[in-house]
Amino acid sequence: MWEEMGLVRVYTKPQGQQPDFSDPVVLSTDRGGCSVEDFCNHIHRSLIKDVKYVLVWGTSARHFPQHCGLSHALQDEDVVQIVKKKEKDEGGRGRFKSHSTAPARISDREKKAPLKT
């Protein structure tokens, strides 16, 4: 019946927890589509902006878990975990964060007076 109607059940998996098989997200191939982007839109419209990547378990994945993008096509009874982007911290990149208030470029720094000898 699910195949004839073109319906796909997708289960959610919170990070660090077991999948929730009690309440699937039902997508339709006829109405809207069955991609990861459609899945995110079904949960909340603003979720797409925050998605870093998606982990998928199920028949649509080649290996478990598979890193996927927004265009990945989901199949019936797939399990999806959404990994969101972290908010950017001000003041540097990665592990080389600067704790000073000095300008980032050397050419923008103020010139100090030369030492008197």
Results as ranks from 00 to 15, higher is better:
Met1Phe: 04
Met1Gln: 05
Trp2Ala: 15
Glu4Arg: 08
Leu7Tyr: 05
Leu7His: 02
Leu7Arg: 03
Val8Ala: 02
Lys13His: 00
Gly16His: 08
Gly16Cys: 03
Gln17Asp: 05
Asp20His: 01
Asp23Asn: 13
Pro24Trp: 01
Val25Ala: 03
Leu27Asp: 00
Ser28Leu: 01
Ser28Phe: 00
Arg31Thr: 05
Gly32Arg: 04
Cys34Thr: 14
Ser35Pro: 02
Val36His: 02
Glu37Asn: 06
Asp38Phe: 00
Phe39Gly: 03
Cys40Ala: 15
Cys40Glu: 03
Asn41Met: 11
Ile43Leu: 12
His44Ala: 09
Ile48Asp: 04
Lys49Met: 08
Val51Cys: 11
Val51Arg: 08
Lys52Phe: 09
Lys52Pro: 01
Thr59Asp: 15
Ser60Thr: 07
Arg62Asp: 15
His63Glu: 13
Phe64Asn: 11
Pro65Ile: 03
Gly69Arg: 04
Leu70Gln: 12
Ser71His: 09
Ser71Leu: 03
Ser71Val: 04
His72Val: 08
Leu74Asn: 02
Gln75Ala: 12
Asp76Tyr: 03
Val79Ala: 03
Ile82His: 06
Lys85Glu: 06
Lys86Asn: 10
Glu87Asp: 15
Lys88Cys: 09
Asp89Phe: 13
Glu90Phe: 15
Gly92Ile: 05
Arg93Glu: 15
Arg93Thr: 12
Arg93Trp: 10
Gly94Asn: 05
Gly94Val: 02
Gly94Ile: 08
Arg95Gly: 13
Arg95Trp: 11
Phe96Lys: 11
Phe96His: 11
Ser98Asp: 15
Thr101Trp: 11
Ala104Tyr: 15
Ala104Thr: 10
Arg105Asp: 14
Ile106Ala: 14
Ser107Thr: 13
Glu110Ile: 11
Glu110Arg: 12
Lys112Gln: 15
Ala113Pro: 08
Pro114Asn: 08
Lys116Ser: 14
Lys116Ile: 14
Thr117Asn: 13
